[in-house]
Design a protein around this nucleic acid. Structure first.
Length: 423
RNA sequence: GUGGGCGUAGCUCAGUUGGUUAGAGCGCCAGGUUGUGGCCCUGGAGGCCGGGGGUUCAAAUCCCCUCGUUCACCCCA
């Protein structure tokens, strides 16, 4: 090992190693398959955007914008930011490329890394990956429900267990503003009885008071009005349609009036998928409706609904719930050359087999048979192809099935065929 | 930004009240007589005990600082 100082990855930015890749590929396959079935097309946007996009889109006052963005000045003097979420970029692209002109309804999904400067913990990294979808051009609870149903099927497709879906309605911007004003008044009246943290929340995060762990705060909360109860008739009716549609599709959910979204643009429908396998950060999907964002970013007034999936969190669930890994043998052949001549023949054979579509491997140096056999077994190859003096002379390969232990001499020319048909 | 836990071999961890050449299991490599893997046996490589400073005759062990990591708060996917 070198004595030079080791360089390691940046805090909160981790490698996804080969062992973990199968989970990621399953997730990506399920996404392409399920989202495609619901009419969503993939879109890829840059990781780096004008800082103003997020400041305006997510909300100047949010914690994400104020404290968590990777923002810096580029060489030309412009302020740029590594995207902390995907929706703002998609909406920007939607406007910039006039996607609204192709059809009144636009369905897009994306996947990729996001960046937030936070303290890492279980299920939270500084570079993390999200899969998200946006349905633009429709203001209907049917669209909201469609997304949630799609997600439920996606969860099913991945085989995730013990998943809980919680839904809520935040009301329209006007309804929420009126409610918050009322709530603020009531909170102010009881200010002295609230804990220190909640006193701060009065001005910053009113709704968070509801899930304060402090017992006296909890007791007081029972007396405060709930946002869901204060909605107007229309919002309530829409929320009911949303819930009924989920029920029709046999999607189980519970109504949680405390579900709040952290980004400013959300209104009306809000939802979260959670799983206890995740620890403290237990939500792996969060989403909701945002009817003002497109206009806010300079596009035509366009209602929209969307969600974001935290991929690392999904991987955590899959790992926690994984079934026993089967250590079965995989199709393919490991070639073993016992001497220089045989080894050279094996190298040629290796290339032929690979060209025929066979998964084939071998060493780069002639080693003892024991050593080569051990590696064939370690890599879980179903077949070993042994070549020594005898085989060279007869132009054959001793094909050994490592699973059964049986072996037979096969003509070099027939090897590819017997592997393809017999494998 | 705040608080707690943990940094000893590639991995998981032992290491007694400070006391010789710092250990185990797994993994890796090589052998166990002629050309046969897994199981078993033997051997080997691999550690400035995260880094720096201090106390001491003596520090992996005690103290301080620092870095890293992890969990939680805040907040979020």
């Amino acid at each position: 090992m070198s004595k030079k100082k080791k360089i390691q990855s940046i805090t909160g930015m981790s490698d996804i190693l080969p062992d973990e890749i199968p989970y990621w590929q399953k997730i990506e396959e399920a996404t392409k398959e399920v989202f495609g079935r619901y009419g969503f097309s993939e879109i890829r946007t840059p990781l780096l955007e004008d800082t103003a996009l997020f400041a305006r889109g997510i909300g100047e006052g949010t914690q994400v914008v104020q404290k968590e963005m990777y923002t810096f000045e580029d060489r030309g003097g412009d302020m740029v930011t590594l995207r902390p979420e995907g929706t703002a970029s998609v909406v920007r692209s939607y406007i910039q490329n006039s996607l609204y002109a192709k059809d009144a309804i636009t369905k897009l999904y994306y996947k990729g890394p996001m960046f937030r400067y936070e303290r890492p913990q279980k299920g939270r990294l500084r570079q993390f990956h999200q899969i998200g979808a946006e349905l633009m051009g429709v203001d209907s609870p049917l669209a909201d429900a469609e997304l949630v149903i799609m997600l439920a099927r996606w969860v099913q497709c991945l085989g995730l267990k013990d998943v809980v879906l919680q839904v809520n309605s935040l009301g329209t911007v006007a309804e929420r503003a009126a409610y918050l004003q009322d709530l603020t008044k009531q909170l102010e009246a009881k200010r002295d009885e609230l804990c220190e943290e909640c006193q701060e929340r009065i001005t910053k995060n009113h709704l968070r008071v509801f899930d304060c762990k402090n017992r006296s705060c909890q007791a007081l909360c029972k007396g405060f009005p709930k946002l869901l109860d204060s909605l107007g008739e229309e919002s309530k009716a829409e929320f009911n349609v949303f819930c009924d549609t989920l029920k029709e599709a046999k999607v189980e959910f519970s109504i949680n009036p405390l579900i709040v979204r952290g980004l400013d643009y959300y209104e009306k429908t809000a939802f979260e998928f959670t799983c206890d396998a995740l620890g403290s950060q237990n939500a792996f999907v969060g989403g909701g409706r945002y009817n003002n964002l497109v206009e806010e970013l300079g596009g035509p007034a366009t209602p929209a609904v969307g969600f974001g999936i935290g991929c690392e969190r999904v991987v955590l669930i899959m790992q926690a719930q994984k079934a026993e890994q089967d250590a079965s043998f995989q199709d393919g052949i490991y070639l073993i050359g016992l001497d220089e001549n045989s080894f050279t023949l094996c190298r040629r054979l290796l290339q032929d087999l690979r060209d025929q579509g066979v998964f084939a491997e071998m060493d780069y140096n002639v080693k003892s048979m024991k050593s080569q056999m051990r590696r064939a077994n370690k890599l879980r190859f179903k077949y070993a192809g042994i070549v020594g003096e005898e085989e060279c002379k007869n132009n054959t390969v001793l094909l050994k099935n490592l699973e059964s232990g049986e072996q037979e001499a096969v003509n070099v020319g027939d090897l590819g065929m017997s592997l393809v048909s017999g494998g």
